[in-house]
Amino acid sequence: MKKFVVVTLFPEVLDCWLNASVIGRARGNVFDVKYVNPRDFSTDNYHSVDDYMFGGGSGMLMRYDVLKPALEHAKAMSTNPFCLAFSAGGRVLKQDMCQEMSEYDGDIVLMCGHYEGMDDRIMDDVDLELSIGNFVLSGGEVAAAVLMESIIRLLPGFVEKPINVQKESFVDGLLEEPQFTRPRVYEGKSVPDILLSGHHERIEQWKREQKLKRTLLQRPDLLLSTHLDKKDMQQLKQIFQELEDVKRAIFSGQ
């Protein structure tokens, strides 16, 4: 069973999410989460965990003399821990990293900053700095929730049919194809006829073409790092030709 140890000032934020829906049902069976609160390692009468920044600057920074013992305690609670801290300058989270961490033979320790962030010296004590995107949050708890869910759903026993996870966006470097359910027609919008044809080979071919088209139009950057076979390249050429035809049709009357 995968175990996460989260160093956080606000464990209740994570517990609201961890006890809900399919994640809540998997807790205790597929994974477990323990908390370490840095405030428990503060030594002053006020149990303070932050202070003003040397050199000036707005906001308060979490202190190294509180973070370090909290992290050491989290490591002591873990087996073969892999420690990471959430940071704007860290590696951006991607699906292949989630896969690697789901397969890691050990526990995962997550450092959640708050206020203006953490004293930078704590970064020398972790294995990885991680970012979940180019935006700013008030604390690392939401980032920890994102990371844990992306890992948990890949763990054995989380889903009844693992193949459902294997076909999702980013697993093969592409976005998923458009998907539909009942009713077949609603307010004039209909499900593509091919999906109701019963011809499985053509359906799979359509799905692959739609994955390539959607990725090209919405996330073309993904195609630069995705393995494409000869058939994929032929489909992409056809898609480019269709787009060129539309372009000519639009601008021919101007």
Rank of each mutant, 00 (worst) to 15 (best):
Q166C: 02
K230Q: 15
T181K: 06
I239H: 00
E209C: 04
T181C: 10
G198T: 06
Q235V: 13
T215M: 03
Q218L: 15
K207C: 00
P162G: 07
Y186A: 09
E244D: 10
Q210P: 03
K247C: 13
L216W: 11
L223S: 08
M233W: 08
E201L: 13
G188C: 09
Q238D: 05
E168K: 07
K231R: 12
Q218M: 04
T226N: 10
H200A: 06
P162M: 03
K207P: 02
T181R: 08
G188V: 03
H199M: 05
E187P: 03
A249H: 15
E204I: 03
H227K: 13
R248K: 15
Q234K: 15
G198E: 10
D193S: 11
L212V: 05
F170I: 00
E209A: 11
Q179L: 05
S169F: 12
L243T: 05
P183L: 01
V165F: 15
R219L: 03
L222D: 01
E176P: 02
Q241M: 11
Q210L: 04
E201G: 11
L228W: 04
L195R: 05
S169L: 11
L212I: 04
S169T: 13
G188L: 02
Q235I: 11
E176C: 02
V171E: 09
D245K: 13
I163W: 09
D172E: 11
E209S: 08
